[in-house]
Simulated assay, not measured.
Amino acid sequence: MVNRYSIEEFIKNTEQVDKGEGFFELETPRILEVNLDGLVWAKSGAMISYSGKIKFEREGLLENGIGHMFKKAFTGEGATLMKANGKGKLYLADSGKKIIILNLQNEAIHVNGNDLLAFETSIKHNIKLMKKVAGMMAGGLFNVRCEGTGMIAITSHYEPLTLRVTPGNPVITDPNATVAWSGNLQPEFQTDISLKTFVGRGSGESIQMRFEGDGFVIVQPFEEVNMQVSSS
């Protein structure tokens, strides 16, 4: 069924509306509005519009010390984080993915580098290298540990599912479908040769993430399969 609008009707049905929700506001399920008065971190390339006086700057390779050096491979497409600084309204989106706002209360969460959209400056971020899944994920070399008190926005293809991890009941996930996991969990990587005929991996193997302990894992019903990660 084709929806038909007059121009006036279309504007009324789609125009931006202030909801008064604060710093991060979901303008639509797939567009994040940042009511900016200062600084915010965001995924480079995620800006779709802004109003006001806002300046953008890519994160320097050594800005947060040698431990944060990650060259060009943050998302698998050469993108990094950017800083948006100023006062105005900033609109962020990422390939039409669903956006989830999480309000951390002195907590930590690990987010797949491809699924972190934005976060407040009160959140400490530390980029972690996952060598064993190099080339397997879209940006799969990296996940980002976000810790502290403040808001972060993560993305998911379609509706995410959260799986509880309890002692003695590990959860196994496909790295390409894994969005985030609780800060206290440290996944192990395992190879399941028996699955090699069911997956289209160039290596002929299935690499999985194994979570053990007490926490949660967020997965999406979509595999962000293989974009070659640059190391230059």
Rank of each mutant, 00 (worst) to 15 (best):
E21D: 08
H68K: 14
G139T: 05
S6C: 01
P170Y: 05
I193K: 12
G65V: 03
G168H: 08
G200F: 07
A138T: 15
R4I: 15
Q228Y: 13
F23S: 01
A180Y: 04
T178S: 07
V17E: 04
A108W: 05
D214W: 09
F74H: 04
A138Y: 11
E107H: 05
A138M: 11
F10N: 02
E59V: 07
V144C: 05
A46K: 01
S44D: 10
M137A: 14
I123F: 04
E77C: 06
N85Q: 10
V111M: 00
I127M: 07
P167Y: 06
S230F: 12
V17H: 05
F23E: 00
L116Y: 01
E63N: 09
G213A: 00
T191F: 08
G113N: 10
N35P: 03
Y5C: 02
A177T: 12
T14R: 09
G67K: 13
I127T: 11
K98Q: 12
L129V: 14
G200Q: 10
M136S: 14
G215D: 08
C146P: 05
F70E: 11
G204H: 08
K196V: 05
R145A: 11
F70M: 13
N169A: 10
E59N: 00
T191Y: 09
K132V: 11
E63Y: 01
L117E: 04
P160I: 02
F198G: 11
V133R: 15
I66W: 09
A79R: 15
F74M: 15
R164L: 12
